[in-house]
C-alpha cells in the first residue's frame, strides 16, 4: 500500500476528491506515510530545521542544533518541546458576555461564570493554534507530550539524530 506524493499533498490540503479520500480511509494504512508526509510538510515550511514530528497544521517539533523545539511555520519558536508551547503563546480569554457574543448568540454560548473560552495564538503570525473551553481557573492543558525517543528508536526504527 502506497500513495503518491501528489495524492498525499491533496489529502493534507483538504482538496482530495471524496472518492479517493474514502478509498484511503477504508483501505489499510501505508507504512511509508510518516516519511512521505514529513517530506511534504518539510517542503511546505520556509525554515530549514529538520521536522521531527508535526504537532498541528502550523506547529512542528524540529531539530534546532542540539535542541528539539516547537516551531510555527511562520518561523516563531516556542522552545523545548517538553514544555507546553502554550506558555509561550499569546492568549485571549473570552470570559465576558461581550467577548463571547462576538462568536455565539448568548443562548448558544456559555455562561461566563461557568466557563471561559481561551484562544492561544502564535505570537509570530497570530494564527489561532488551539482553543480551550474550561471553567475559570482551570490549569492550562498540555495537549500532547510525545515520547520522541521511543517513537523513533522502537517504532520507526530510525535514528532520531
Amino acid at each position: 500500500m502506497k500513495y503518491d506524493e501528489k495524492t498525499l499533498s491533496a489529502l493534507i490540503s483538504g482538496q482530495l476528491p471524496w472518492a479517493e479520500t474514502k478509498e484511503i480511509m477504508s483501505g489499510g494504512k501505508d507504512p511509508d506515510r510518516f516519511r512521505m508526509v514529513l517530506e511534504i510538510v518539510q517542503s511546505m515550511v520556509s525554515f530549514t530545521e529538520r521536522i521531527l514530528l508535526p504537532l498541528g497544521p502550523h506547529l512542528y517539533i524540529v531539530q534546532k542544533g542540539t535542541d528539539r523545539i516547537v516551531k510555527c511555520d511562520c518561523g516563531y519558536e516556542f522552545g523545548d518541546y517538553r514544555t507546553n508551547w502554550k506558555f509561550m503563546s499569546r492568549v485571549f480569554v473570552r470570559n465576558s458576555q461581550e467577548s463571547l457574543q462576538e462568536l455565539y448568540h448568548p443562548d448558544q454560548g456559555v455562561d461566563p461564570d461557568w466557563m471561559e473560552l481561551r484562544e492561544f495564538y502564535c505570537p509570530g503570525c497570530f494564527h489561532l493554534l488551539e482553543t480551550e473551553a474550561v471553567p475559570p481557573g482551570y490549569p492550562v492543558m498540555f495537549d500532547f507530550q510525545p515520547d520522541l525517543e521511543t517513537f523513533y528508536r522502537d517504532w520507526l526504527q530510525q535514528p532520531l539524530e
Partner: peptide, 15 residues
C-alpha cells in the same frame, strides 16, 4: 486484495 501491514492479514475489498 491487500495485506494489512499492521497485523499482516489479508483484507478483501471493499473496492
Amino acid at each position: 486484495v491487500r495485506i494489512d501491514p499492521a497485523v499482516r492479514r489479508v483484507t478483501l475489498g471493499p473496492d
